[in-house]
C-alpha cells in the first residue's frame, strides 16, 4: 500500500480530538515557524536582490566600456575624433558617445564637491562605449586605438568589476547558506516540539494505548497537530514578511542592493513556497520524531 501524506494528515480528522488543544509548548511550533518563515522570506528577497545585482554587474556593465583620452589641449579634439571613428567602425561596438564635461564634473561631484573650477580643471576626455553581443576583439581594438589616437586608453571595467562580482557571488552564497540554516533550525524546532508534545502527554499516550490505539494512530494525531501549527505559523510569518517587503520604500533604479529589495512577477512564487516547504519539513520531522518516541516508550 502506498503512503499518502494527505490521507495521513486529513484522512481521520476525528483523531485530532485526542491531542489536547493547548499545551506548555503549543505556541512554540507556530511561533518558531512564523519567525523562520519571516526570516526565510527576507533571505529569499535578499537572494533575489543579490541575483539582480550580480546580473547587473555581470551583464550590463560587461556590455559597456570607457575610453579615456589624455592629450594636449590642441591635440585633444583630433584624437577624440579619431577615437570615435575607430570605435564606430569596430564590429561589436554598438555606440560610442562623448561624455561632455558637465556630465564628467557631475560624476566627480561626490568626491570633489559641487564648486569645481570647470574651466581650469584638467579632466580627460571620456567616451562611453556600448558593446554588442558578441563584443569587439579588444586586443585589435586597442592596437588600432594606439595607432590612430595614442592618448586613448580603452577600459572595459574588468579591473574593478571582478571583485564586485566576486563579492556579489559570495553574498549570494551567504544568503543560500542562511536559507539552508533557517530550514535546518525549523526542522530542529519541530523535532524538539514533537518530542516535547509527546513527552508532556505520556498519560494520554498510555491511556490511548490501553484503549487499543496503535502507534500509527497516536503518531498521526500528534503529527497532524504539529504540522498544522507549523504551517499556520509559516503562513503568518510569510504574510508579515511580504507586507514588510511590499511596503519597503521604493529606491531609485541605481540604488544598488536596496533597489532590488522588491518582488515582481514570478518572484512571488518563492515566498509562497516557504509555508509549503515548512509544512513538508514539519510533517517529515514530526513523523520521524513521533515514530522514534513511540517506539522507544513501551
Amino acid at each position: 500500500m502506498s503512503f499518502n501524506p494527505l490521507e495521513y494528515l486529513f484522512g481521520d480528522k476525528a483523531s485530532d480530538q485526542v491531542v489536547p488543544p493547548r499545551g506548555g509548548a503549543a505556541w512554540l511550533t507556530g511561533f518558531a515557524s512564523a519567525a523562520m518563515a519571516f526570516i526565510a522570506v527576507f533571505a529569499l528577497t535578499l537572494s533575489l536582490a543579490v541575483e539582480r545585482l550580480a546580473d547587473y554587474w555581470a551583464l550590463d556593465l560587461a556590455r559597456s566600456a570607457t575610453v579615456r583620452i589624455v592629450a594636449q589641449e590642441a591635440d585633444l579634439a583630433a584624437q577624440t575624433e579619431a577615437t570615435l571613428q575607430v570605435l564606430r567602425t569596430t564590429p561589436g561596438v554598438k555606440s560610442a558617445e562623448i561624455i561632455d564635461k558637465a556630465a564628467q564634473l557631475e560624476l566627480l561631484e561626490p568626491w570633489l564637491g559641487s564648486s569645481l573650477p570647470a574651466d581650469t580643471l584638467p579632466v580627460p576626455q571620456l567616451i562611453d562605449v556600448r558593446l554588442g553581443e558578441p563584443g569587439p576583439d579588444v586586443q585589435s581594438l586597442q592596437l588600432r586605438l594606439s595607432a590612430e589616437a595614442p592618448g586613448a586608453v580603452y577600459n572595459d571595467h574588468s579591473y574593478w568589476r571582478a571583485p564586485v562580482l566576486e563579492a556579489s557571488n559570495r553574498l549570494r552564497l551567504m544568503v543560500m547558506i542562511s536559507l539552508v540554516l533557517t530550514a535546518v533550525v525549523t526542522v530542529i524546532i519541530v523535532v524538539l516540539s514533537a518530542h516535547n508534545a509527546l513527552a508532556s502527554n505520556q498519560g494520554i499516550i498510555r491511556t490511548l494505548r490501553l484503549l487499543g490505539a496503535g502507534d500509527s494512530y497516536i503518531a498521526r494525531a500528534f503529527v497532524r497537530r504539529i504540522t498544522l501549527r507549523a504551517t499556520m505559523g509559516a503562513v503568518l510569518g510569510m504574510v508579515l514578511a511580504m507586507i514588510v517587503v511590499l511596503t519597503f520604500p521604493s529606491q531609485p533604479e541605481d540604488g544598488g542592493l536596496l533597489a532590488g529589495l522588491s518582488l515582481s512577477g514570478a518572484d512571488f512564487i518563492y515566498p509562497l513556497l516557504v509555508p509549503l516547504l515548512v509544512a513538508i519539513s514539519a510533517f517529515a520531522a514530526s513523523r520521524l520524531a513521533a515514530r522514534y518516541h513511540l517506539h522507544s516508550v513501551t
Binding site: D12, A14, Q17, V18, L211, Y217
Partner: peptide, 12 residues
Amino acid sequence: RQNIALPLLVAG
C-alpha cells in the same frame, strides 16, 4: 461522553 466514546474513536 467523549471519553466513553474514545475507544470507538481509536478503533475508527
